[in-house]
Design a protein around this nucleic acid. Structure first.
Lengths: 177, 177
DNA sequence: TGCAACTGATTGCAATTTGCAATCAGATTG
DNA sequence: CAATCTGATTGCAAATTGCAATCAGTTGCA
């Protein structure tokens, strides 16, 4: 799982970075799910990543410059993983991947609502999101005005609205007449 | 190499389609390199794909609906592979991948000039390119006015200009004084 | 006619990668 | 001081990968 340098083509090199089944999933969970710890990534993983694979990929992503690791002051054995600028600029790729998958693949409604919102928002929303990520992970000053809902909040709200609506559809009348 | 349906997340499902080292490379060569035959994909492959892997991936991409296969009238054993609409709409993803790789990875100049042109052209250029691909692969009427250079011609010209310039830099004075 | 080259693959095989389950030692909590 | 939580590591079976050789039918050319 290292970089082969099979060719200097940008698409090939990008594939050598995250052309496997897990690297981009981990980055997705960090970017969209706000995960920062090993256990968060392990236990809340939708796709059920194994701990050895997670450990291997985190290490690899650090070597490649997509993640950094720091001690968590609250626990001597706890590590906090942060996205680098290199990883944050994957947001447009994630958005395009999500948009494509939503059209062509059998996505579930509650999981694709975020892709839809991100697609509708377009580059300006992606920029706002990347700005927020820089604030969270790199300590950069936030350019987003306070009060304005964060992109992650918007994504979360949209997700929960779909979940709530679907629960209502299954059980339309909760209490008896 | 089948679809697991690990989760209904669009990004995950997209990864299950081309989250391997070869599928997107094959599609890249068809989209940008204009390859249509097995041997073209095999012999002109920059990354040196093996014939069994190529055969396997072509089959898989057909099963997934990204490619179709037809007989070549010129040769009874020759097959022509065509992109489907599903594959053609990968152009924006390819463009983003190329743009990201160009910034963060050790790309070679002559291979990244295409990514640069595609990035500069933005969505309008991508649309024109997809229109041309629909014309080539799906027999759709071309909306691009005749006379206007095709995107593939532009990409090719840009590539050759870089190669020529680099040759000149290495050997600045060809003939003796 | 005859033979080499070309067509799109397939097969055998060794090496690598994968994912599951169990385990680890140190840190913290109750 | 025992249970739990931390980020891993190890053993192992199964799957995947890529290289090399091979295949049978088709074609071009002498």
């Amino acid at each position: 799982m290292s970089i082969d340098r099979r060719s200097g083509c940008p698409i090939n090199l990008s594939l050598e970075v995250f052309g496997d089944r897990w690297s981009l999933i981990i980055l997705r969970d960090m970017i969209f799910g706000g995960r920062r710890h090993f256990r968060e990534l392990l236990n809340f993983s939708l796709e059920g990543i194994a701990s050895n694979i997670l450990a291997d990929r985190l290490k690899r992503l650090m070597e490649l410059g997509l993640l950094t690791k720091a001690d968590d002051p609250s626990h001597k054995q706890k590590a906090i993983y942060s996205l680098t600028e290199m990883a944050i600029t994957l947001v447009p790729i994630m958005a395009q991947l999500g948009a494509w998958g939503r059209v062509w693949l059998p996505v579930s409604e509650e999981l694709s609502i975020r892709a839809e919102l991100l697609e509708k928002g377009g580059p300006p929303l992606w920029e706002q999101f990347m700005d927020e990520l820089r604030h969270e992970h790199l300590g950069a000053p936030s350019k987003t005005p306070t009060g304005k809902p964060t992109v992650r909040q918007q994504l979360r709200a949209a997700y929960e609205a779909v979940v709530a609506r679907k629960a209502e559809e299954i059980r339309p009348i909760k209490t008896e007449a």
